[in-house]
């Protein structure tokens, strides 16, 4: 078992674009759930809308990069509004069911054979990342970040992804310290009280839903770019639940919590995978196959989600006194 390699892999996860995508999407959930109390169980849907919006506009319409990103964002805004109209007047549990249903509807629609021309159905779409890498300012070569060597493409996507994460964190922080954020926190606790103070609760919830959705959409693009492919199976409901795990790990009503949560999530997954696979390789564990070792990690995710919610709902960074759902 090569501990050095396992640690390097774990470090790789720390700065991987997938971690950045999870951080962004979880930050969107923090805006939804942590700050506004909107129980959005359809963040995977927002990510899918972003990823497909980008891929379809690039492939089917030949849109240049900025237009494709814009299309992705506008689609997620429209999705948020369409979703918000029926649900934002409802109780939290209804909202949860409707958002999860909406995300599944998106997934069914991009999977259907009737739209294969546009969405590629179950196979998904590929080869849309060219315009993104064409903008790469880094010359060809191998770049080292700490112990990790990577190509100029991998460096470029990481730089872009984490820049977006930093900007998004800054924006959310600015928003949440403002009176606007205060209204949201008020809504999280008691929307009728806020309504009685003359605030248009519905509009605030809609704005929060849209902002979190835009973050989800960005996350979808970042998630899909390094893979060079977008497939419906990646946007199933589990994705949303993994995001909730990240959010709860870090602290749901904090700005940096989702980012740190996503990092912990992926580093722990990588470490457990490395250790389990390593142990299987050297014969220390004989009763697990590699496939089962992979599944075991997801069992742990589920157990971790339960334990977190029960024993430390404020996460690593959160303040229990500020936690609306303690």
């Amino acid at each position: 078992m090569d501990f050095g390699n396992i640690l390097i892999n774990a470090f790789g996860e720390l700065i991987s674009p997938t971690t950045a995508a999870y951080a962004l999407a979880a930050l969107g959930l923090a805006v939804h759930f942590g700050y506004s109390g909107l129980l959005n169980f359809g963040q995977a849907g927002f990510m899918a809308v972003g990823a497909y919006g980008y891929a379809i506009s690039t492939l089917t319409f030949g849109a240049p990069l900025p237009v494709a990103v814009l299309v992705a964002l506008v689609s997620s805004v429209v999705f948020a509004i369409v979703l918000g109209i029926p649900t934002l007047r409802l109780r939290a549990d209804y909202l949860a069911i409707v958002t999860i249903a909406a995300a599944e509807i998106v997934r069914y629609i991009v999977t259907t054979n009737g739209l294969t021309e546009v969405t590629g159905s179950a196979n998904g779409l590929a080869a849309f990342e060219g315009s993104f890498y064409a903008l790469n300012p880094f010359p060809q070569g191998v770049y080292n970040i700490g112990p990790l060597g990577m190509s100029e493409r991998n460096l470029w996507i990481r730089v872009v992804a984490w820049t977006i994460v930093v900007l998004a964190c800054l924006t959310v922080w600015l928003l949440m310290r403002s009176p606007w954020g205060r209204v949201l926190k008020g809504i999280r606790e008691d929307e009728n009280a806020v309504r009685a103070l003359g605030k248009n609760v519905y509009a605030y919830k809609m704005q929060a839903l849209v902002i979190g959705g835009i973050l989800g959409s960005f996350a979808g693009i970042i998630f899909t770019l390094p893979r060079g492919a977008v497939q419906p199976a990646n946007y199933a409901t589990e994705l949303t639940f993994f995001l909730y795990t990240c959010l709860l790990l870090g602290g749901m009503a904090t700005v940096l919590g989702p980012v740190i949560g996503a990092m912990i999530f992926w580093v722990v997954l990588s470490l457990t995978q490395g250790l389990l696979y390593g142990a299987i390789e050297i014969g220390a564990i004989t009763f697990l196959s590699n496939v089962q070792a992979g599944q075991l990690r997801y069992i742990l995710v589920g157990v971790a989600l339960m334990l977190l919610m029960v024993f430390r709902p404020q996460g690593v960074l959160g303040n229990k006194k500020e936690l609306a759902f303690a």
Partner: peptide
Amino acid sequence: GLVPMMIVSIGLALA
């Protein structure tokens, strides 16, 4: 609370 319990049930579902 009911919302935390809902999230616990999601963890249970995954597990």
